[in-house]
């Protein structure tokens, strides 16, 4: 790990000012991602601004849902009764993430900002356009069992590692951020950006902008949401494929609203719009779910070792929809 200066921020504005104006500065909260990457020399910040003292830890039920402070740790959010009740996919995704220890440390804001587990990104001796622009993508033609089958580019086929973000997509969460220019709110679907030709850019945040809260809007579909994580071992592993499904089904069994989001398949948490379109207005049954599952994989391609994710995604979507629809 490189030597760095350390500062504690006591208010949001000073935190923003110190990071926005200093290209060598970065925030630290739970530290589970940035410390890990600093040990690999992937991140070498000159200044770490500790934001754990900021008053952004609360988890508050509101008239319209639940507002989760960016510094709330994963375990507290998962354990919150309103989250578990109204946004089961969110609680499930959190509890299927990492380990109890890491969930006690890692924050919601940090979770959204976490960087890919791509082995080429994490290994400073290897080519990676995200880490070293223009050096190439080692995963193309390399060890890519865990890599993206959709949304990648010639420059980058990494996957986003967050379970939470996938569940947030399915409940239409909104990310509140604060920059020097002020506050803005970003629907989670527009928060992460595809690698394209600039894989080093991962979110729409400007330098220094800080996530302050994530808002979970209450909705019938969110209450009927389900998170399915498929992995090799039974726990403590990143997803091979994950699915967050949310369904609002009428008393007559017709689907009024649907969200399908995928993890482990793309450089960003992936919203499967085609699958959603195949669901809305249809009866909530196995046939509909199968059609939606097939639609979810449209546009997916193999890069060598990861082609199995296409079939796996299809089956996982069908399974997750069955759960969300109460049929599993």
């Amino acid at each position: 790990m490189n030597a760095f200066r350390y500062a504690q921020a006591h208010d949001v504005a000073s935190a923003l000012a110190s990071v926005a104006g200093d290209p060598g500065a970065t925030y630290i909260a739970g530290g589970t991602n940035v410390i890990d990457l600093m040990k690999e020399n992937v991140e070498r910040p000159a200044l770490l601004v500790d934001i754990t003292g900021l008053p952004l830890r609360g988890i508050e039920p509101t008239a319209h849902g639940v507002r989760v402070g960016a510094l709330a740790v994963m375990s507290d959010v998962a354990d919150h009764p309103a989250v578990a009740r109204d946004f089961p996919a969110v609680a499930q995704a959190l509890l299927l993430s990492a380990s109890p220890q890491l969930r006690n440390m890692a924050t919601i804001g940090g979770n959204l900002m976490q960087r890919t587990r791509c082995a080429y990104f994490r290994d400073a001796s290897q080519p990676c356009n995200k880490r070293a622009a223009g050096s190439g993508c080692g995963a193309l033609g390399g060890v890519n069992r865990r890599h993206a089958v959709i949304g990648g580019s010639e420059q980058c086929i990494c996957t986003h590692a967050s379970d939470l973000a996938v569940a947030l997509l399915a409940v239409d969460a909104v990310v509140h951020v604060r920059g020097r220019a002020g506050e803005r709110s970003i629907p989670i679907e527009h928060f992460h950006v595809l690698p394209g030709t600039t894989p080093q850019r991962e979110t729409v945040l400007e330098r220094g902008e800080l996530i302050t809260a994530v808002e979970l809007p209450a909705a019938a579909a969110a209450r009927n949401s389900y998170y399915l994580k498929v992995r090799d071992r039974a726990s403590y592993e990143f997803a091979l494929v994950s699915v967050a499904a949310a369904l609002d089904v009428s008393a007559g069994g017709r689907i009024r609203a649907a969200r399908v989001a995928l993890g482990g398949v793309a450089p960003i948490p992936w919203r499967a719009h085609a699958a959603e379109a195949a669901l809305v207005g249809k009866p909530a049954n196995a046939q509909t779910f199968a059609a939606a599952a097939a639609a979810a994989t449209r546009g997916m391609r193999s890069y060598g070792q990861n082609g199995f994710k296409i079939a796996l995604t299809q089956r996982a979507v069908a399974r997750a929809l069955a759960h969300a629809g109460g049929a599993a």
Partner: peptide, 11 residues
């Protein structure tokens, strides 16, 4: 008010 508020220590 905050521009010089965070006080850095180290390395």
């Amino acid at each position: 008010a905050s521009i010089s508020v965070v006080r850095a220590q180290g390395p």
